[in-house]
Design a protein around this nucleic acid. Sequence first.
DNA 1: ACCTGAATTGACCGAATGGTCAACTTTACC
DNA 2: GGTAAAGTTGACCATTCGGTCAATTCAGGT
Lengths: 231, 231
Amino acid sequence: MEARHANEPARLDRIGTTTSNPGVGERQRERIIRAATVVFSRKGYDGARVEAIARKAGMPKGNVLYYFKSKKALYRVVIKQVLSLWLEALGNVAVDGNPEEAIRQYVNRKLALSRNHPEASRLFAMEVISGAPIINDHLSGELRRWVEEKGRVFKKWQEEGLMAKIDPAHAFFMIWAVTQTYADFEAQIQAVTGAKDYDQEIYSDAAGEVVDALVRGLGLKRDQGSSLQSA
Amino acid sequence: MEARHANEPARLDRIGTTTSNPGVGERQRERIIRAATVVFSRKGYDGARVEAIARKAGMPKGNVLYYFKSKKALYRVVIKQVLSLWLEALGNVAVDGNPEEAIRQYVNRKLALSRNHPEASRLFAMEVISGAPIINDHLSGELRRWVEEKGRVFKKWQEEGLMAKIDPAHAFFMIWAVTQTYADFEAQIQAVTGAKDYDQEIYSDAAGEVVDALVRGLGLKRDQGSSLQSA
DNA sequence: ACCTGAATTGACCGAATGGTCAACTTTACC
DNA sequence: GGTAAAGTTGACCATTCGGTCAATTCAGGT
């Protein structure tokens, strides 16, 4: 008992040596995080039971508390991982090239995130709805700066008449709202559409129209000089 | 102890008689519901403490359980009230008159709902994110029928070239997503914009642009024969 | 074979919480 | 003013849950 409760990724040294496998407990740790993400996203922090997480991860409760010193500590790790996923996908909006193509790509990437990580999306949503007690600093720090930076590009586009005059921040809010809704409100969309295969019918079939509507709503124009096509 | 645990609005008979005031405990009941809406919307079902609700309603815990036989029963009452608020605001989309004006009005009404009842919006969101365990039937029943009905009108508009070709259901999903985001993700929007006065800066100042963007995105045209103006 | 530390597990504990209850107060009606 | 029901309150109970711990097993190094 020495590596106990280390919230960092644990020692990744001596990787590749014959004897030391790629992190004995590292695999466990990841299984726990994955299970916790699912449970937290459905039940919220208080509703989630440590034992439920343990069962989903296929191990006794005690083992979960062996790797994470407390439920709260586990939650922090999970939510920060989710946040970094969010910011990462946000990361690169191709500000050069034509505006339409750039945003279209961005929206699609965001939509793919909702599709491939719906639990992460829901967990993030729950955090924010609860007042973002844990990630507030990140929102008013990193995220805010990121929006300001990209916002300047939007302003330029708007001056060139390539984008509708709308507060850049709110343009992002619109995009985020629409893309996240497909993960967060899946239950509602499922109920209303009666889709048999959500993934197929919603993301594959209908998403295209929605992206078009967003691009149209933001009044994005194809830059004259550009040659990239949206396929 | 006879009217105990009656989940209905309780006897509203003999209203107006001198002696019987307008529902002695009826006022209490409403205070509890209002308090519960706030607490549930921030903490989720499991995170909400009965005692916290009681404190916010200004009475001891025992009193809350006197009016509602259990926490779960209280939750059901609260969430159903929220749902009816939702459906009520959904109720009338003026399908006659010009499409642009109709939707503009609808979006504005929905936005007002987020503004005036942010807790209700958040609670609704939490329910859905959790898989809508309680209101699922309503979603796949009432709401679904409502969307189908209004959807037919959208189809007609689309055939007349007054609206962009987009699955009507998804048009609604877009509208709901954008309008709800201002209530549900208030913490994020607050953090990113740094707004001093959320209500003013967001709803009064910025909302207009967003409504415009939505209308534009859905490709809504002003019907020729109509004379109504959007002010 | 032996040793050492990591990992696993189930029993156990204390705190917190939903819910009950019995005593008490207020209100409405004769 | 008497009475019965409605409403109020705090003490109390049973359960659940997060977290601890000691006992045990497992893996790698010598």
